[in-house]
Design a protein around this nucleic acid. Sequence first.
RNA 1: UCCACAAUAGCUCAAUGGCAGAGCAUUCGGCUGUUAACCGAAGGGUUCCUGGUUCAAGUCCAGGUUGUGGAGCCA
Length: 445
Amino acid sequence: MATTIRIADIANYVGQEVTLKGWVYAKTGKGRLHFVRVRDGSGQVQCVAFKKEIDPEYFEIVKGLTQESSVIITGEVRADERAKGFPAGYEIGLKTVEVVQEAVDYPITPKEHGTEFLMDRRHLWLRSNQQWAILRIRATIIKALRDFLDNDGFLLVDTPIITPAAGEETTTLFSIDYFGDEAYLAQTGQLYNEANMMAHGKVYCFGPTFRAEKSKTRRHLIEFWMLEPEIAYCSLEELMDVEEQMVAYVVQQVLEKNRPELEAIGRDISKLEVLTAPFARISYDDAVEKLQAAYEKEKDPEQKELLKIEWGEDFGSPQETALAEMFDKPVFVYHYPSAVKAFYMQPVDGRPEVCRSVDLLAPEGYGEIIGGSERIYDADLLIQKIDEHGFDRANYEWYIELRQYGTVPHAGFGLGIERTVAWICGLAHIRETIPYARLLNRKYP
RNA sequence: UCCACAAUAGCUCAAUGGCAGAGCAUUCGGCUGUUAACCGAAGGGUUCCUGGUUCAAGUCCAGGUUGUGGAGCCA
């Protein structure tokens, strides 16, 4: 049997006879000529069968091939401009075919389907071109994020998923029975990151987080993956430097490695090519002024109402979108009101009503992809904030103790992987950015 | 939790209160450059559920279920 190749490497085998092991993606026939598009996970190639050129037994098998049947094919690789494929420009002149298993009535046809139908069959939908391309881009994004941090002296330190107490507010936690005790699924690794940072200087964690928010929007998942760096002796301004360089690096890596995938999902690549550092930085105060100016200019009463904002309120989705639309790159908004942010954020010197926090808002309506801040490093101030929020001080003893043994100013942020993937891919909904989305009304398959 | 909209063939959708329809998919036949092929034929229905109005309900009314989009909350 000829050498088994990956379709991704097909360019190296022009003129040679090869073996392909994969699945039938689609088939069209025209009498004595049949085209079978075969995918093998690494790519997709069309195999051409002419009746007079191959064994009649194999021609009959080709005629009866069904979508998603698993097949082993041998044939000669040819360069041909007419062949679309992935990579494009190559085809295989089919010589033999073996059906490993015949798939009958594969439900996802190359036609339109509704969201519910596809999500119920997510385990199969993953094979479709667009979904395949999105998950490849997701993998590039995750690798680029980790490469960037690893190359910049960060250490990956894992944080627990089962936790004894809330990271932030308790209303959005999933509780589990821990041998008779109550425990929670982590909604952030940040508090542990701060301890790990004291040991390693610059750390990050990367893993799933869980939020029992009853959110039903295009940018929320119940289970999502978050990358959380934490840096000792770091100011808010230095934190923004890291964020913008990291995001710019990720976009550049996707452009370098996944251009065909971006084309396959129809992404407007010009919108990504402009995304180089630095990004604009505006204060919450300025952002509110910009939104209020936009409010005055808006004519549509419905849109106008959505833009309405008073100083002190957090931004909703419409406001984030409107703000981001004022820039063609992501934009930093810093110094949010302390009242709308987490208890551990450092107040601004001389202006305790605002804090040393920063969100990075993505363009094109994708909203907040990063939230970060300087953390309170004074033990007494931290205790005061824990009390003010009505949290049980006993749950935070170890966290307070970090401030008693060599405390330092420090800062960190959390980047939502799926929102980043949705933005870079230009997707209408976050559910396609993760293999098996956990949504308000869905935990199957 | 709130607001809006929707549910009809395997899928995507039509159908003025009056015979349940189309395209695709499937099966069969034809076709040597297709890639959402094309041409011809066939099979395929608990119109989401419960109740009501009416001579007559897929269509109107009430309640429910499920889904979609949005808000709030957040990454």
